[in-house]
């Protein structure tokens, strides 16, 4: 049993870091795609969605190429900050973050698009500079979408397998998150009970996150109905 709890604890830690890493970036991308017309917007949109359509193993391989110890970003991170990501739990978090990004951007983009631009205009005529109008109108009104996106990203991170095992490997206590532990258990004779327990925990955590996300989206929809 303690074994399983350490797997759950590691999974939660990886997923929380992944969501924390992705949240500001996903919101910035969502805002850009929702509110700005610029050359290359379609390309950026495609790039954001890449992890959703490319096989996760390929995403993991790309991460290895870029963030491996000899990769351009990986080598730089190690030289500048002494940060190594491959085969570390932080690397598992990076893999989960990249895989969660498209889902988070989608949820947040919808909520930003639902904020009436005319309210932002009203704020401007009342004396708000663009940044203040964003912080006092767009941001609070899209908050339910941010929370929903975070929950969705969290659920996605909990289930991440392909990119993680490719980039961060399957190291017990370091990168062996729930799906990897289940996979490992399936390779061992006599671990059926452990596999079942881990699977049930996975299902409960994921459904919990999705239900919370759905509730937040509904609350946001209900509030928008009141907007004049």
């Amino acid at each position: 049993m303690p074994d399983e709890w350490s797997v759950v604890a590691l999974s939660l830690r990886v997923s929380l870091l992944a969501v924390a890493l992705t949240l500001p970036l996903a919101y910035a991308l969502a805002w850009l795609l929702a509110r700005r017309r610029f050359p290359g917007a379609i390309l950026l949109d495609a790039l954001v969605h890449l992890p959703l359509v490319v096989p996760p193993v390929v995403t993991g391989w790309l991460l290895l190429v870029l963030f491996g110890r000899t990769g351009p970003i990986g080598a730089w991170l190690e030289a500048q900050f002494g940060i190594v990501l491959v085969f570390r739990w932080t690397g598992a978090a990076l893999a989960a973050a990249v895989m969660a990004l498209p889902l988070m951007v989608r949820a947040m983009r919808l909520s930003i698009e639902a904020v009436d631009r005319r309210l932002v205009e009203a704020a401007r005529t009342l004396g708000a500079r663009p940044w203040r109008a964003f912080a006092t109108i767009t941001l609070p009104l899209s908050l339910p979408g941010i929370a929903a996106g975070a929950m969705l990203g969290f659920a996605r991170s909990l289930g991440e397998f392909g990119a993680t095992i490719t980039f961060a490997s399957n190291i017990a206590g370091e990168t062996r998150t729930l799906p990897l532990a289940i996979y490992s258990g399936l390779q061992l004779p006599g671990a059926e009970a452990q596999v079942a327990r881990l699977s049930v925990i996975s299902i409960v955590l994921s459904i919990g996150a999705l239900v919370i996300s759905e509730l937040l989206v509904r609350r946001a929809g209900g509030r928008r109905a009141h907007v004049l």
Partner: peptide, 9 residues
């Protein structure tokens, strides 16, 4: 504004 545009939040 004709549609008032009060901030709903």
């Amino acid at each position: 504004f004709q549609d008032a545009r009060l901030f709903p939040h």
